[in-house]
């Protein structure tokens, strides 16, 4: 039963990584840039949801929507102010700017919301009354006579991830904007000649990625409830790793990479060593990249001489 429990929590953590990785992979696919500020957008989303729920006593769902709205706007503003002027610059210049944005978000959060950790209250609970007439909070359900405990957060996370993934696949496949995105990631110049507004397409990509980051932030902090200004950075790096793992630029690759990374991390924690789990995760990444240098589902680009 232990193994099944670890597998489920691995899939749950992996789902969060997958949602974050989607943001990285879509932006990379279209703008060919590593958006290192993405992890900090997650943190902003989590803070917005936290304040909406705990300070203004809004229902959790409204909190999530507010977080998504703020993060989407933030994503568009960041893109317009910091990345758009650098369209023609070298990728390294864009990378450093992204790092600057990341520092900016972290330190702005530090000033606005201080470094003292906020304890994120889990929105996925059910209140019932027990035999003694007392109100109790139930955070999950049990299977196999209580041998396997699954929290509601876990289920919600996995379902949300699958829904997002299906929606995105449909969006990129069927809608006009989705097709424009794929065209831009294939060849920006040719797309522009066909009448596609490349700037709008890139902005929409950032908006979607940042909106997803808000959802990921809420889910992440529901499962791991301490919230500090640097909350987003490590999951951000891991999700970036997941995106590369699955093949950066590929949406199914982000799902696969995220899930595998989550499972490997939890399994390594359970069976190898808690402190060394990160090392195991990165070691697996290196081994995969050595065998498949473009990631699991990445397209292998032929070199033209």
């Amino acid at each position: 039963m232990g193994f099944l429990g670890f597998l489920i929590s691995g899939i749950s953590l992996g789902s969060i990584y997958a949602i974050i990785a989607l943001g990285y992979t879509m932006v990379y696919g279209i703008a060919k840039m590593l958006n290192f500020a993405h992890g900090d957008v997650i943190m902003v989303g989590a803070y917005i949801c936290f304040f909406a729920v705990s300070k203004y006593h809004l229902p959790p769902l409204v909190g999530v929507l507010a977080a998504m709205a703020v993060c989407t706007a933030l994503g568009i503003v960041i893109e317009k102010l910091a990345y758009k002027p650098l369209r023609q610059a070298t990728s390294l210049a864009v990378l450093i700017t992204a790092i600057g944005v990341s520092y900016f978000l972290q330190n702005a959060a530090l000033l606005l919301w201080t470094s003292s950790p906020k304890v994120f209250s889990n929105p996925f609970i059910r209140q019932t009354v027990n035999e003694a007439g007392k109100k109790i909070k139930i955070t999950g359900f049990q299977l196999f006579d209580g041998q396997l405990r699954i929290s509601y957060v876990t289920v919600v996370t996995i379902v949300v991830c699958l829904v997002i993934m299906a929606a995105l696949v449909l969006f990129t496949g069927k809608t006009k904007m989705g097709k424009a995105m794929r065209a831009c990631s294939e060849d920006k110049g040719a797309a522009q000649l066909m009448g596609i507004n490349v700037d709008t397409t890139i902005s929409v990509t950032f908006a979607i990625g940042s909106g997803l980051a808000a959802i990921a932030g809420v889910l992440l902090c529901s499962a791991y409830p301490t919230l500090v200004p640097t909350t987003g950075s490590m999951p951000g790096i891991k999700a970036f790793t997941a995106a590369v793992f699955g093949g950066i630029g590929s949406i199914p690759g982000a799902l696969l990479g995220g899930l595998l990374l989550g499972i490997i991390e939890i399994m390594a924690k359970a069976y190898i060593s808690t402190q060394m789990s990160d090392a195991v995760v990165f070691l697996v990444l290196i081994l995969v990249l050595l065998v498949k240098p473009a990631g699991l589902l990445g397209k292998k680009v032929r070199e033209k001489v």
Binding site: L34, F282, L285, L289
Partner: peptide, 23 residues
């Protein structure tokens, strides 16, 4: 490796070295 993949593997090695020294 080349390009961004090389970059991510160096990142991974940096983290592995940190983990090893931490333990």
């Amino acid at each position: 490796l080349n390009g961004d993949y090389l970059a991510i593997v160096t990142l991974a090695f940096g983290e592995i070295i940190k983990s090893i020294f931490n333990n």
